[in-house]
């Protein structure tokens, strides 16, 4: 078996589905953020594999930007979680059912 970039894209698709399942099924805020990270990583992997197919480096630059945005997203997301935890004493998103406090 020779490994082609296509195999990596399929691997990325499976990882994306697992991440999506985590976001849809879990109720803990931390797990949902983790699921989003996994989905972002899967997208990154697909990008790198496609870039490898076409022989360009632009995809890798894109992945670099996605990593930076992911870092920003995590900082804000976790700050939100901490703020929510201080208010509700729980990070269960089911309990986050009020529009204002």
């Amino acid at each position: 078996m020779t490994v082609t970039p296509m195999h990596f894209v399929i691997f990325a698709a499976v990882l994306f589905a697992i991440g999506a399942a985590g976001v849809l099924l879990r109720r803990s805020g931390i797990s949902i953020l983790l699921g989003i990270e996994l989905m972002l990583n899967a997208a990154n992997l697909a990008l790198v594999a496609f870039g490898r197919m076409h022989g360009t480096l632009d995809a890798q630059v894109f992945v670099f930007f996605v990593m930076a945005v992911a870092a920003a997203e995590v900082a804000v997301g976790l700050a939100l979680l901490v703020a929510i935890f201080r208010k509700l004493h729980s990070i269960d998103v089911d309990r986050l059912n009020v529009l204002r406090w």
């Binding site: 399929i10 698709a13 499976v14 994306f16 589905a17 697992i18 999506a20 399942a21 849809l24 099924l25």
Partner: peptide
């Protein structure tokens, strides 16, 4: 939720294999 995630996975893989 599970169905949607499965759909994303299976659908993605199916489309990719067809490419």
């Amino acid at each position: 939720g599970l169905l949607l995630a499965l759909l994303a996975g299976v659908g993605g893989v199916a489309v990719l294999i067809g490419i």
